[in-house]
Amino acid sequence: MSAAQGVLDRLVTGDRTALARAITWAESADPRFRAVLTGANERVGRGWRVGITGPPGAGKSTLTNELISAHRAAERSVGVLAVDPSSPFTGGALLGDRIRMDGRTSDEGVFIRSMASRGSHGGIARATVDAVDAMDAFGLEELLIETVGVGQAEYDVVGAADTVLVVLCPGAGDGVQALKSGILEVADVLCVNKADLSGAERLAADLEEAVSLRDVEPHGGWVTPVVSCSAGTSEGIEDVLAALSLHRTWLEDGRLEAHREARRLAQVHRALAEAVDRELWEAFGWRERAVRLLADGAAHYDVVADLIEELRVQTRTAAGGGASER
């Protein structure tokens, strides 16, 4: 029996170390992950995925911890995938989200995994969706994806989640910042955390206003609710849960299939882009060709045009069978 088959068998029978190993394979682009996921594919899609994003320090992890508690109280199992940034210089990372979810480590119904962003710039890692798929196949019901602290333009989590929860807090810019950054558009639910601090009410009012001024609803008729809470003191969590649950009901009312199909398609597109890049750039010798052309003084657009032309010629040759071979 292959190692992948062993992990697959153990994954579907609830062995947590098998889930942990599958995620490691996903992260390290180990081909065994593909074998595991293929085997578990029909088990994927049962969990509900909530992406939790927002600026650094807004309270994403603290709120995640509160959401875990609430789901556990309702006897739902929970998987958490928490992403922190990798250093662009050394590639190392300090993964600290877990500290805020400390009390949950010994709970059998909770599985928490930290992940470094490893050169991805969209707020999640290349392997994040794969890892959440593995948690889903394992049978975890509530799947929470915490992104790295985002700035103004890192919203890949939209393509990874059913519901996107944006967490903001007073002191990290006003409503104008939020308007500018596009964070309002990605939010299915907007949450002002740290309601115990001054400025929270103002921020919530600004956000309400911004949402109501919107000319085009980015989510096909869903009106983004604004809720406030204090994750640090466990206050207002039920309002956050209620808003999340409303969005879920709304999606499940005939909209979920299209939503998930778009997600799966994006997954294919991304994996394909990676595979094509790997095949052509390394295996097909494009890197050497590019090096040669650059050394001959070509501008980079010309190098790209040359490579694409080469690809066209090759595909035509392949399509025309052996006939056109020189």
Binding site: I23, G92, L95, T105, S106, I112, A116
Partner: peptide
Amino acid sequence: MEVVYTGLHQTPAMIAEAAAQED
């Protein structure tokens, strides 16, 4: 390296369980 720091006051079981989940 990618370093998971789990904070203060951990029981041996908590450390081991976190190590297992984090692989």
